[in-house]
């Protein structure tokens, strides 16, 4: 299959990627600082996961080129992952807590 017309996009400049890289390093630095400071676990988890999602989004959008692809590719790939992750979180963790509360011999 040859590339249909319009599939070749204007290549983003290297400068953009370097900026993304710098941002990723900065966000990592924030995570490291959080690790040094040590806040309560719930807060830590929320902040760290938010940072990770942002980092993942940056990697996917720029390094993995998703930002420059057709929107429907994003809509094909990402929702499935998000839905399944939500399902895991909604239905797995109640049982984890249940396990803790109903543990034998505690």
């Amino acid at each position: 299959m040859s590339h249909p017309a319009g599939a070749e996009h204007a290549e983003p400049a290297s400068k953009l990627f370097i900026w993304v890289w710098i941002w990723l390093l900065l966000l990592t630095a924030v995570e490291v600082v959080l690790g040094y400071e040590q806040y309560p676990v719930k807060l830590m988890l929320t902040m760290l996961m938010s940072l990770s999602v942002i980092k993942a989004a940056l990697i996917m959008a720029y390094f993995m080129h998703l930002r420059f692809e057709k929107l429907k590719l994003v809509l094909t790939l990402v929702p499935a992952l998000v839905v399944i992750l939500c399902l895991f979180s909604i239905f797995f963790f109640p049982d984890s807590l249940r396990l803790m509360n109903l543990g034998w011999g505690r």
Partner: peptide, 20 residues
Amino acid sequence: WHFVDLVWMFIFPLVYVLSI
């Protein structure tokens, strides 16, 4: 390769930062 990198972005905080 980027995906391998991306996975690490979750392992790093969950396995390392939260085990300090």
